[in-house]
């Protein structure tokens, strides 16, 4: 049961971070379907730091652990934001179709990460053609054991981000302006808000959070990541969480815990007596989060609270 709680929390954190990213971006008026690609790039950034920064858990003090954590954090965020610029430039400045660009980013993220990791592995060892990075030791820098419970520091980060996002969106001038750009950009422009700048910022923030979500995902329970696999549709699950959470940070958090639990069941059902006795094939548990999200979406999409102007490129000259 401790294990179930642990996995639920970590997967919920991933979904929460990424869904908050999607939420901020949509409040600014840009649908971010490229979250999956952003996650992969964020994961790549963090994994590369863990691969190349020397670290040994046996000798490391608290200071070194914090340093490692910060480096991983910064690398993920930086790559996530850099990659999200692809969406910002295309959809804000060039008014490109956000669905096509987002889809392209997802494919591009996985392809780019695979090419980078494979060529890196091959360059180090000519016989190594895998797309894997392993980070067993450095990962321990940001894991703390509380009794049997293993706390990943990124869970704490997710909670902090939740609070920051809520305050930013609903208690600051910036948040009000950002949301105005997603609801009625013409009105926002008429009172002197730079819609393009706001949308750029919205997408960049989603890159920041998406990158964090990516690194959290690949440190959840595993210590080796095969980049060919991308992030298994988690970017889209996060979008489902966001819709279920009605574009509101705290409701999103609730939805993330629910979805996180269904995902966690796939990892731990073998350890839970009655679930093991049911002898359901493991594929069913793997499918569970996706099935649940379909059902949930079917019931919650009708009265959508989506920002009114999302997905529509803003054109100054338009009436």
């Amino acid at each position: 049961m401790v294990l179930l709680l642990q996995y639920t929390l970590i997967f919920a954190s991933v979904l929460l971070l990424v869904a908050l990213g999607g939420c901020v971006s949509e409040h600014s008026g840009v649908i971010n379907l490229g979250l999956e690609g952003i996650m992969v790039m964020g994961a790549l950034g963090g994994a590369l730091v863990m691969r190349f920064v020397p670290y040994s858990s046996a000798t490391a003090g608290f200071g070194e652990r914090i340093l490692m954590f910060l480096l991983v954090f910064l690398a993920s965020v930086a790559l996530g934001m850099l990659f999200s610029m692809l969406l910002a430039v295309a959809s804000v400045s060039f008014k490109a179709d956000q669905t096509i660009v987002g889809t392209a980013m997802n494919l591009l993220g996985t392809a780019l990460a695979t090419v980078v990791v494979k060529s890196m592995n091959t360059a180090i060892n000519p016989n190594d053609h895998s797309s894997e990075i392993s980070y067993i030791e450095p990962k321990k820098a940001f894991l703390s054991n509380i009794g049997k419970f293993e706390l990943n520091w990124f869970v704490v980060v997710a909670v902090v981000m939740l609070v920051i996002c809520f305050i930013m969106l609903y208690k600051t001038r910036f948040g009000l302006r950002l949301r105005a750009c997603g609801e009625h950009p013409q009105a926002a422009d008429s009172v002197g808000i730079n819609v393009y700048k706001m949308r750029y910022l919205g997408v960049l923030i989603s890159g920041f959070l998406g990158g964090l979500g990516g690194i959290t995902y690949i440190t959840a329970g595993v210590s080796v990541w095969k980049f060919e696999n991308g992030v298994a549709g988690f970017g889209f699950l996060a979008l489902a969480v966001m819709i279920f959470g009605a574009w509101h940070p705290f409701k999103i958090a609730g939805a993330a815990v629910l979805f996180g639990m269904f995902r966690a069941l796939g990892n731990v059902y073998n350890g839970i007596g009655f679930l093991k006795d049911l002898k359901i094939p493991s594929a069913v548990y793997l499918m569970l989060p996706y099935i649940v999200s379909l059902i949930v979406l079917a019931f919650t999409s009708k009265n959508s609270k989506a920002p009114k102007a999302e997905g529509i490129p803003y054109d100054k000259g338009q009436r």
């Binding site: 549709g233 889209f236 379909l294």
Partner: peptide
């Protein structure tokens, strides 16, 4: 149900 086809499509891909 007004479900976004992109999201339902991805969910069905994994299922």
């Amino acid at each position: 149900c007004n479900v976004n086809v992109v999201i339902s499509g991805i969910m069905l891909n994994w299922i």
